[in-house]
């Protein structure tokens, strides 16, 4: 426990440290996650510091999240003891999720199928299939759970869908224009007609490496898996977000598409905004480097660490983590 209160490491120390994940650190990590994950004292720490403590092996490739020593970035999202059920069957999926995300951080949630990762991301954006039964989610200081889905979006929360739905009869261009104008209205800025908006959007297409005719097609209709994911990122590029939840943005992508999507996401990052990735595979984490990796199991985050957790996962599977 006392380890958690170590001062933040200096940048030179961070860069010199190598990944040296071990079963022992895993054990200590698990203990800490069970006992005091994200409690009050945790909030005083800079994230990178806690990483260092947990694993003795920080990966600081991005160096994000602790730009100034001792000056902790603001908390963006704080989820406490969040529980949720499927609205129809009342089956409990989330059994007390705790998570804190600060400005500029990249987090990844990994876990087996059915562990609740996707449910968690859907609950955050207010999907009607799920009902929150307890706990809290504070986003930018406001109660997220009180907001309608569109308010959450306008307030700066974006989720890329795992399987974006087809909208026959609505062109991608019109859809983006509607979403863009909703945002402009919220910000009290001028809404754009189709011609002005075309100017805005055509510049963004390069971000996801898509051709202009992409805009004339109906939303996701007949899109390949890769095109759907690119389209989600295009929406993110046009709308912007303080926190982007990327739900399996890597599934169904070949390496080229994955690189394009990752490059686009990296290009959108600023010291202020944050990303929460949901993924099965370490592959994505090679392209978008997280500060934190959380392991989800049976509706809870059971372990938090750095990129080295993912390496253990890749080699030995979830068993190595849950049995460790």
């Amino acid at each position: 426990m006392s380890l958690l209160h170590l001062p933040p490491p200096s940048p030179s120390r961070l860069t010199s440290l190598r990944n040296s994940f071990s079963v022992i650190t895993l054990n200590s990590l698990r203990v800490s996650s069970q006992r005091c994950r994200f409690n009050q004292s945790r909030l005083t720490l800079t994230p990178t510091a806690s990483l260092t403590v947990d694993s003795h092996s920080p990966t600081t490739s991005s160096g994000r999240g602790s730009t100034e020593e001792g000056d902790s970035p603001k908390v963006l999202l704080e989820v406490r003891d969040l529980t949720a059920v499927i609205a129809e069957s009342k089956a409990q999926i989330l059994k007390g999720v705790n998570l804190v995300i600060r400005e500029g951080e990249i987090h990844a949630i990994m876990g087996k199928n059915g562990s609740g990762k996707s449910t968690f991301s859907k609950v955050l954006v207010g999907h009607p299939d799920y009902e929150v039964t307890g706990g809290s989610a504070i986003f930018k200081g406001e109660n997220l759970l009180d907001m309608d889905p569109e308010e959450r979006s306008l307030f700066g929360l974006f989720m890329s869908f795992q399987s974006p739905i087809e909208i026959p009869g609505v062109s991608n261009m019109d859809f983006l224009n509607m979403a863009y104008n909703a945002r402009m209205r919220k910000l009290g800025r001028k809404e754009l007609g189709p011609i002005e908006f075309y100017e805005v959007i055509s510049r963004k297409l390069d971000v996801v490496n898509m051709k202009i005719d992409f805009l004339n097609r109906n939303v996701n209709e007949g899109f390949s898996g890769g095109e759907r994911k690119r389209n989600e990122i295009l929406q993110l590029a046009v709308l912007g977000a303080d926190l982007s939840v990327l739900d399996e943005i890597d599934s169904g992508l070949d390496v080229d598409a994955l690189q394009d999507v990752a490059k686009a996401v990296n290009g959108l990052l600023t010291p202020k905004n944050s990303v929460l990735m949901i993924t099965h595979y370490q592959r994505l984490l090679d392209y978008i480097r997280p500060n934190y990796i959380h392991i989800m199991d049976d509706g809870r985050i059971v372990k938090t660490g750095d990129i080295s957790i993912a390496k253990v996962l890749e080699k030995e599977g979830y068993k190595a983590i849950s049995s460790a």
Binding site: P128, S153, A179
Partner: peptide, 12 residues
Amino acid sequence: DQIFYFQARGID
């Protein structure tokens, strides 16, 4: 699901 997709992008 289609309605939610719009709402998730901030459209009323």
